[in-house]
Design a protein around this nucleic acid. Structure first.
Lengths: 131, 131
DNA sequence: ATAGCTGCAAAACGTTTGCACTAGT
DNA sequence: ACTAGTGCAAACGTTTTGCAGCTAT
């Protein structure tokens, strides 16, 4: 198995993600990390985010037709998301308010790494500007 | 409000989607629809899928780094998905086996159009070829 | 008649990758 | 020293879009 190195790029990306109050995409993260490491490349940001997601440190949120958003898993405090179909805004929902999903009939041998519950719809802001 | 036309392109795309036993992407759908309408363009397929998704007739499944998959909502027979992180394969899960999600603390005024529950992980095939 | 819809092709977009080099272990 | 990680830039695959012509209403 591969050894994982603790580079400043990885630290910086994680730091930005941990401090983010939103659910940023790779480009935004790149811009923020640049303030600490001006020469970091977007490619490295993607590679780092990929690794962090595979390690389960962060999670990804894919919205149709929009850039993938990334979400730091704060101290195992699980939460789900409400995704606006109009503007792509993402709202956090405390998982504690939702009953834990029961074990369903998954394919035999399927190893679950992540359960995600998403409410898709229209946020108030987008609903009001509709005609 | 915009009028929706019942073109043969739209009919054909819907027909293919209804008969699909898998969760195809736009390119596959395009190939299939071509058998009925050889001149239909990929752009039209995308525009049609977009409209159908907005109407709630079909749903989209976004996997990280892979093409968006489309899923016809058969007669309101709701189901959820298990998505393989390795190969992108999607397995259906009967929603009847899962407790109905309780009303959570959504943003005030948020109109829910779709609730999706996804189990992300590794399918048996991908797990066996790992070392 | 009049918009909506289409085909085409080009472009935009997010993301990945090959390479030579750097740096963590 | 060894090799994972990096910066750069080019390439990739998916999706969108401008436009002129077509077609359902």
């Amino acid at each position: 198995m591969p050894m994982v190195r603790n580079t400043k790029q990885r630290q910086a990306v994680l730091e930005v993600l941990r401090g983010a109050r939103t659910h940023p995409d790779a480009a935004w993260i790149h811009g923020e990390v640049r303030r600490a490491l001006p020469n970091i490349s977007l490619g490295t940001v993607y590679r780092t985010l990929d690794a962090l997601a595979r390690d389960g440190v962060i999670m990804t949120i894919e919205s149709a037709g929009q850039a993938t958003r990334y979400d730091y898993k704060h101290d195992g405090h699980a939460h789900h998301h409400a995704v606006c179909r109009g503007c792509g805004a993402i709202f956090d929902i405390d998982a504690a308010l939702i009953a834990p999903p029961p074990a369903p009939s998954l394919p035999v041998g399927f190893q679950v790494m992540d359960v995600r519950l998403e409410y898709h719809g229209i946020c108030p802001a987008c609903a009001s500007q509709k005609h």
